[in-house]
Amino acid sequence: MYVATKGGERAIEAAHAWLAEERRGDPAVPELSLAQIREQMALAVNRVMAEGSLFDPDLAALAIKQARGDLIEAIFLIRAYRTTLPRFGASLPIATEDMAITRRVSATFKDIPGGQILGPTFDYTHRLLDFKLAAEGAPVPTAACKPADADPAPHILALLDRDELMEPLEHSDATPPDLTREPLEMPAERALRLQALTRGDEGFVLSMAYSTQRGYGRTHAFVGELRIGRCAVEMDIPELGFSVEIGEVELSECETVNQFTGSKTEPPQFTRGYGLVFGQNERKAISMSLVDRALRWQELGEDDTGAPAQDAEFVLYHCDNIQATGFLEHIKLPHYVDFQSELELIRRLRRDAKATQQEAAQ
Rank of each mutant, 00 (worst) to 15 (best):
M1C: 08
A4G: 02
T5G: 09
K6N: 08
G7E: 11
A14F: 10
A28D: 13
L34R: 09
E39M: 14
M49L: 08
E51A: 03
G52W: 04
L54H: 07
D56T: 05
P57T: 12
D58P: 01
A60V: 10
A61S: 15
L62S: 04
K65S: 14
K65C: 11
K65W: 13
Q66D: 15
G69D: 11
L71M: 14
I72H: 05
E73F: 02
E73V: 10
I75Y: 03
F76M: 13
G89N: 13
I94N: 03
I94S: 03
E97K: 02
E97Q: 13
D98A: 14
A107F: 07
T108K: 02
P113F: 00
P113L: 03
Q116K: 08
Q116G: 04
T121Q: 12
T125L: 15
K132C: 09
L133K: 11
T142L: 14
P147A: 14
D149A: 15
D149Q: 14
P152N: 05
P152G: 05
A153Q: 13
R162N: 09
R162Q: 08
D163H: 12
E164C: 15
P168R: 13
D173E: 12
A174T: 12
T175I: 12
P176W: 02
P177C: 04
T180A: 08
T180P: 01
R181H: 06
R181C: 00
E182D: 12
P183R: 01
E185I: 04
M186H: 00
L197I: 09
R199K: 11
L206K: 02
T212K: 00
T212Y: 06
H220A: 09
A221G: 01
F222A: 00
V223Q: 04
E225A: 03
L226M: 13
V233H: 04
P238M: 07
E239Q: 15
L240A: 14
G241C: 14
G247W: 06
G247C: 10
E248D: 15
V249S: 03
E250D: 14
E250N: 10
L251M: 11
S252W: 02
E255D: 11
T256M: 02
V257I: 14
N258E: 09
T261F: 04
T261A: 03
G262E: 10
S263W: 10
T265I: 15
T265Q: 15
F270N: 06
F270S: 00
L276H: 00
L276A: 08
K284A: 06
R296Y: 00
E302V: 00
T305I: 02
P308D: 05
Q310W: 02
A312E: 06
F314I: 13
Y317C: 03
I322R: 00
A324E: 14
T325Q: 14
F327Q: 10
L328C: 08
K332W: 07
H335S: 14
F339M: 13
E342H: 10
L343V: 08
E344G: 05
R348A: 11
L349A: 14
R351T: 13
K354I: 07
A360N: 05
